[in-house]
Design a protein around this nucleic acid. Structure first.
Length: 883
RNA sequence: GGGCGCAUAGCUCAGUUGGUUAGAGCGCCGUCUUGACAUGGCGGAGGUCCGUGGUUCAAAUCCACGUGCGCCCACCA
């Protein structure tokens, strides 16, 4: 017996465990079925899931559950990401609360502690995914720092190094002075800020009062200036090229050089060159062989390469001091207020510093080539397609990827340094020593392992094959790679998607997936990006607590239209929770009327018109849902099943079915029981990918004779039902009739409970039969007493024209003749306009000759119908006036 | 500086390759506690589809320009 009320929380608690106990999500249950694979975008082990994860995983689950029901051997590969910087920061923040830093613990203990954090977080995350209903094969759960995946990382690093695609280089990198690590270009966020442009006078050597004025937003870096550059064609400065300037405050003698990079329009037209602290200046310096003077340390404080007065000052302190000193010496020409972009570390939130260090780089340009090709030739397709442009844009201009990080949490780079700096890159320490001994030709060598770890995205890039066992040749790798679709947000197309494609092509020589489905960002109800600092985070677990996982899933699916951000509002979730209630109650109605699918039920043998109609409608709904899911139009799939379940099945079919279920005709009753039960089953099936819990619950409760759970039940494949089309026409007309009667009743203020008779006035035999055959269905829902036939409507009747039929409701007591006359006049007016519009088209020579035949034909039919209706309405109006 | 997206009902949004009368959720008005469901039923109001121009037999849909938002990329001191 179903409970009287639908309580999502209670329903959902028990269902998931049963699925897991049954091994419903495990791979390999279906012998030689075609595999279908999705690898989860591994959540960071920094804490818990946010609403974006809820969307991301709901969509994946919709696909996986759908394909599983379609009979595929579905693998949803779960796991988590160690998330180097992010996780290290979380642990450091926790340490800070205890008044400690990671240095108090030391590397080993710190890493140990981070593993604990990881364990806790994984527990939380996997619990949340289960609560959401995610049907992952948990037996295959992986973590990017598992032994197997770490082996894959080392193998990739070693191979790429030996192929010359990874190298060590001393160059400027984005340095995060708070986190004390290099970060990649992608981790730098440009922010627009108000600032100042300082114009500084640099004295020209061997002159009296001749200055070259440079403009800068970062005056403190002048301490590291080693040149001044001007444009070669700039007449203002031509005479100074080749001379030297003297760096104020420092006294360094610096060449004035001509370089076409300089924009004469910008600033003063003369550029101070600081090769150690600016990417452009670094290049200019190289071209003109300028010295590189690094004046900042890892904390972005001035180092001993600067004059003593500034050493130890933080960069912003140093800026103030430099300005003050220049001012005092009269070398500050002017200060402009400007808006400019400042690079910030996306994690630390402090300005990043271009800083000269030794780092490891991957030759991304080489790796990108095949990765570009596979998208160009369609072996990988983005949905929506527009994202391919974004992908190409970035990939075609890709820069070397700085893959080393000065962190403790992550994959330690498998490189060892000999005493002379010789580098040995090997899978293991043992092999490194072997290589070193052979290199040096002696036994007693001391190697020091690289301290740096790899960018977290380095291991994520291997995820589609490392989780399947690579570099070992496992059966899973053979069977489930390439995977089918990757579902992700656009914010990590560069970070992750691009790199998976690069690594997949390089190491597997095969695409990692054939489709990339890019979904939107979830924003709050006001459209703001959710963030901790804004405090507008919506915790999906709170929403699940309040409304249930199914309603949340349905909402996210229904809102996952392609190409727009999602503004999540609770009223929407509530609305879809109500949909669950509706379905629940429909199932209760079926239960109390003993509606169950009989064994061996064949929908094509159904005879009753109402039942033939709903069976045909099911087939249409199934088609709509299937098409929508297979083309990733998730919102359409959700809406199709919503509309069918509520507005077709509940609103019309079940209401019409009641008299049959309660009637004396046992043949019709039994057939209706069977069909109602069967249609409910179909709804549960179609809805299961989106709302797995309630559908499984109703599946189990609505029929005690099930063999197995809905989760692993097959997706339907209906027989040809074209013979049911006449039933669709008939019931369609009946529905229109009832709607019209209801509408008129309300308009004429007929009390809702009052029953009235119906008269068929000028009604062709077919429509007359429709009414008579379905009278027992029509009468209760339209609140009618009896049907009669009359040559003309009796006085005080309201007349309704439906296609070629006219029916009348005798409302002598209540009708307002004038009001009815107005109503008919309005109808006539409307249909006259229709006719005029259609005539406009049909009389257009071009329309008739150029439009497709079926379009023209439709217009002709519609013209015919409208003309008939108009004649009937005019007739009705005449009768009304006569009476 | 380049590139992309969005503008449709009071609010939040759908609307596949152009083709009858543009839909949903919430809200609003009226009405009904009939034996699935008031988390409901029934009926209803509400839209110059941002603007201008163009292509077409036909435009919310395609094109151009404009306006207003939003995002991504970029080395402009």
């Amino acid at each position: 017996m179903l409970d009287k009320t639908y309580r999502p929380g209670e329903v959902e608690q028990k269902r998931y465990a049963e699925w897991e106990d049954d091994g419903a999500f495990a791979i390999g249950r279906r012998g030689n079925a075609q595999p279908y694979t999705i690898v989860i975008p591994p959540p960071n082990v920094t804490g818990s899931l946010h609403i974006g994860h809820a969307l991301n995983n709901t969509l994946q689950d919709v696909l996986i559950r759908y394909e599983r029901m379609r009979g595929r051997d579905a693998l949803w590969q779960p796991g988590t990401d160690h998330a180097g910087i992010a996780t290290q920061m979380v642990v450091e923040r926790n340490l800070e609360k205890e008044g400690k830093t990671r240095h108090d613990l030391g590397r080993e203990a710190f890493v140990e502690r981070t593993w604990q954090q990881k364990e806790e977080s994984v527990g939380t995350i996997t619990g949340q995914l289960r609560r959401l209903g995610a049907s992952c094969d948990w037996s295959r759960e992986r973590f990017t720092m598992d032994e197997g995946l770490s082996k894959a990382v080392r193998k990739v690093f070693v191979d790429l190094y030996k192929q010359g695609l990874i190298y060590r280089d001393k160059r400027l990198v984005n340095w995060d002075s708070k986190l004390h690590t290099a970060i990649s270009d992608l981790e730098v966020e440009q922010r627009d800020e108000k600032g100042h442009m300082w114009h500084i006078k640099y004295p020209v050597e061997d002159t009296e009062n001749t200055y070259i004025v440079v403009a800068t937003t970062r005056p403190e870096t002048m301490l590291g200036d080693t040149g001044v550059a001007v444009h070669p064609d700039d007449d203002r400065y031509k005479h100074l090229v080749g001379k030297h300037a003297v760096l104020p405050l420092v006294g360094r003698r610096m060449p004035i050089v001509a370089d076409s990079h300089v924009d004469p329009e910008q600033g003063s037209g003369a550029l101070k060159v600081t090769p150690a602290h600016d990417f452009n200046d670094f290049d200019i310096g190289k071209r003109h062989d300028l010295d590189v003077v690094n004046v900042l340390d890892a904390n972005a404080c001035v180092n001993e390469n600067a004059p003593d007065a500034y050493v130890g000052l933080d960069r912003f302190e140093a800026r103030k001091r430099v300005i003050a000193d220049l001012e005092a010496q009269g070398l500050l020409e002017k200060i402009d207020e400007i808006t400019h972009t400042v690079p910030y570390g996306d994690r630390s939130g402090v300005p990043v510093e271009p800083w000269l260090t030794d780092q490891w780089f991957a030759d991304a340009a080489t790796l990108a080539k095949p990765a570009i090709e596979v998208v160009e030739d369609g072996r990988i397709q983005f949905v929506p397609k527009q994202w391919e442009n974004t992908y190409f844009e970035w990939m075609r201009n890709i820069q070397p990827w700085c893959i080393s990080r000065q962190l403790w949490w992550g994959h330690r780079i498998p490189a060892w340094f000999g005493p002379d700096g010789e580098i040995f890159v090997e899978m293991t320490e043992e092999e490194a020593y072997r290589a070193a001994r052979s290199h040096y030709g002696r036994e007693d060598v001391d190697l020091r392992r690289e301290d740096d770890v790899l960018d977290t995205w380095f291991s994520s890039a291997l995820w589609p094959f490392s989780t399947l066992g690579w570099p070992d040749k496992t059966p899973e790798l053979e069977r489930y790679y390439p995977t089918d679709v990757l579902v992700t947000g656009f914010d990590i197309i560069f970070f992750w998607v691009a790199r998976m494609i690069m690594m997949g092509m390089h190491f597997m020589e095969e695409v990692p997936f054939h489709t990339v489905y890019v979904h939107a960002l979830v924003r709050d109800a006001k459209g703001q990006k959710m963030s901790k600092s804004k405090g507008n985070i919506v915790d999906p677990m709170d929403l699940i607590e309040t409304y249930g996982a199914d309603p949340l899933r349905f909402t996210l699916t229904a809102m996952a239209a392609q190409g727009r951000d999602i503004k999540l509002s609770e009223s929407r979730i509530e609305g879809y929770r109500n949909f669950g209630t509706k379905l629940w109650n429909a199932a209760r109605l079926c239960e109390m009327n003993e509606c169950r699918t009989p064994t061996g039920f064949d929908p094509s043998t159904i005879e009753h018109t109402l039942n033939r109609w709903i069976v045909g409608s099911v087939a249409h709904a199934e088609r709509a849902v299937r098409d929508a899911i297979e083309t990733y139009r998730f919102n359409e799939a959700a809406n199709a099943v919503y509309h069918f379940a509520w507005h077709t099945f509940c609103d019309w079919y079940l209401e019409f079915a009641k008299p049959l279920l309660h009637g004396d005709d046992t043949v019709a009753r039994d057939e209706t029981r069977a069909v109602a039960g069967w249609v409910l089953d179909q709804i549960l099936i179609l809805l299961h990918p989106v709302m797995p819990f309630i559908t499984e619950e109703l599946w189990g409760q609505s029929n005690p004779n099930r063999d197995g759970q809905l989760v692993t039940h097959g997706w339907p494949d209906y027989p040809d039902l074209t013979a049911f089309e006449p039933a669709a026409r008939e019931i369609g007309w009946v529905i229109d009739l009832v709607s019209e009667i209801r509408s008129v009743r309300t308009e004429m203020n007929v009390p809702a409970g009052a029953k009235i008779p119906l008269a068929l006035i000028a009604t062709p035999d077919e429509k007359r039969r429709y009414v008579e055959d379905n009278w027992n269905l029509i009468a209760p829902v339209a609140r009618l007493t009896a049907v009669s036939t009359a040559a003309e409507a009796q006085a005080g009747s309201v007349q309704i024209v439906l296609e070629d039929a006219t029916v009348a409701l005798p409302l002598a007591d209540v009708i307002d003749i004038d009001q009815e006359r107005d109503r008919l006049a309005k109808e006539i007016d409307k249909v006259t306009q229709d006719i005029a519009r259609i005539d406009g088209k049909l009389s257009n020579e071009n329309f008739v000759s150029k439009a497709p035949e079926h379009v023209v034909e439709t217009q002709r039919e519609r013209r015919e119908e409208a003309a008939q209706a108009k004649a009937k309405l005019i007739d009705a109006l005449a009768r009304l006036s006569a009476a």
